[in-house]
Design a binder for these strands. Structure first.
Lengths: 305, 305
DNA sequence: TAGAATTATCGGTTTTCCCTATATCGGACC
DNA sequence: GGTCCGATATAGGGAAAACCGATAATTCTA
């Protein structure tokens, strides 16, 4: 059996005439006759009762043709489905982003994205870096926005932009008196950090030359689960923290108890990249997505392409 | 696209491994790879995201494979349908019979038929000869039991048995005194007849050398619509009629006011045949049906095979 | 009885499918 | 780092199938 054969028998059932059916199927009448004969042999039944003068379908033939029609409909559906997905920009794009980036970046790009790529449906998720990479591996997401370098291996990485760290301290903190915050100031300060697994914590520690988390002892209970929580803690005077640029842009106006200050250090930034499986087939969708992202970043970040 | 291709993509979707899928489909791995590649090209989309190390289905691929599964199910259904109809004895057999035969023959054969050919479902209809032939032509029935010769042409005819005509007259009719009813007696008698179109009326007229119906004038109002009605008329003394053998066997015991007598004439019988389209494919079903009919006729009829 | 219409058959050509062998790539192991 | 193992992809040739044109066979029509 064969989709072609089914098309043939449906045509004959419709036309009750081998010649006309053959014409409809764009084959010669002998070809169509032969194929139908072969199908009948294969099924072991007579589908059409032929005389030299007429063609009539048998009762079994009738029910089988009904099934054949359904099959051909389904096949058409498959072709249409494929058709509508031929444009790689069309269809859902599943993007994951780290939690210290997503809430501040997404509001900037969602609307432009909807305007520029209305056919692309963005499916967002927020996870920590390791979880994102794991989900990439399991094909649960198509790409991840992270701020940690990954080995080439199975993934490709496209650097998007560098994002400076700002210092956030409470209104009446000693830092308020200082004009410039130096590397030394930072080194002597205990920062409030996000809980384990958040890359921001590691990056902050690196910037401040802090020791590994494991050696810090009882500071652990001050590790917050989200940047928002962290800023709340800063707001009520618990201490300072480092905040990436996009988050600063997002919060600066809202809270009078938090002072955010640019750091002078050259290396106080993190590099945000898009990571995806090297084999991901809709590369053009990613390129289009990247373009929208870069076009809608504030000028406080440094674009990399 | 192709049923084989769909089988291939379902296999790959199930196995996530070209080699294993190829094994399941009993083809080599390059063959399967090539066909899937070709299908992807034809559809213009990527169904599977492959690395040298692994295979994962794309979202479009997922939905397409779902449709493919349904198609394959339908195809399986077709094959099963064909399978269960491969025995020509299986399935409905639509038999039409003339109204002067059906009520007396069918009771004799229905039970034996159900015993001997339980898989064959008999669909009965009763019509006049012309209507039966028309329905044969339109494939509405598969065969007809009639008592009139038909031209070979599109139909085949198998004679089944000869059925004698009996004379039926009321209890106190002049015929009662006679020991033998002669041809001459009949010729001088006006018979009650069935209404136009029933072959029995023509046959009775022929046996009695009656003139054509059109010339009979006001006898028309005594033409009955069924044999049972005719016999009721005989029973209440309206006149005589000819009754075919099987009907006599059916009614003889029931009515004390009707006398049935065998005719001595050699040609006072009608030939009952089975007629069917020459192209009808289930000839064996007809043969089996005929065998059951012949095996269950009373010995008062003369079997012809 | 000739002609038109219709399905079946035949021989040869083209297309498709399939297989074996091999290339290529990525990961694992030493 | 080299080598082997496990995957998928590619190439070439051979077998099967599908297809076509021409023609036969049959039946209806005029």
């Amino acid at each position: 059996m064969n989709l072609r054969d089914l098309k043939y028998i449906v045509a004959v059932a419709d036309c009750s005439h081998f010649g006309h059916a053959a014409e409809r199927c764009h084959v010669s009448q002998p070809t169509l006759s032969g194929q139908i004969r072969k199908l009948e042999d294969e099924l072991g039944i007579t589908l059409f009762e032929r005389t030299k003068r007429s063609v009539a379908i048998t009762p079994v033939g009738e029910t089988i043709v009904a099934h054949a029609r359904e099959i051909l409909e389904q096949a058409k559906t498959i072709r249409q489905l494929a058709q509508s997905h031929q444009d790689p920009l069309v269809g859902p794009l599943r993007i994951g982003a780290i939690m210290t980036l997503s809430p501040y970046l997404m509001p900037l790009i969602l609307k432009p994205l909807r305007d520029r790529l209305p056919q692309m449906q963005l499916v967002l998720s927020e996870e920590m870096t390791e979880t994102l990479l794991e989900r990439l591996r399991k094909h649960e997401i198509d790409a991840a926005l992270i701020a940690t370098p990954v080995d080439a291996g199975e993934f490709s990485t496209i650097p998007l932009f560098d994002e400076a760290f700002w210092l956030a301290h409470p209104r009446n903190h000693p830092f308020q008196e200082k004009k410039n915050i130096t590397q030394k100031d930072l080194d002597n300060t205990e920062l409030l950090l996000l809980s384990e697994g958040h890359c921001l914590a590691d990056q902050a520690m690196e910037v401040c030359h802090m020791k590994a988390r494991a050696e810090q002892g009882d500071m652990a209970d001050l590790h917050a689960a989200s940047l928002e929580t962290l800023l709340q803690l800063v707001g009520v005077g618990f201490g300072c923290t480092l905040v990436p640029d996009l988050a600063v842009q997002g919060i600066r106006m809202n809270d009078k108890d938090i002072i955010t200050r640019r750091l002078q250090q050259k290396d106080a930034y993190r590099r945000v990249s898009l990571v995806f499986r090297r084999s991901f087939p809709r590369r053009q969708a990613l390129d289009a997505f990247i373009e929208v992202v870069l076009d809608n970043l504030p000028d406080t970040v440094i674009r990399l392409s």
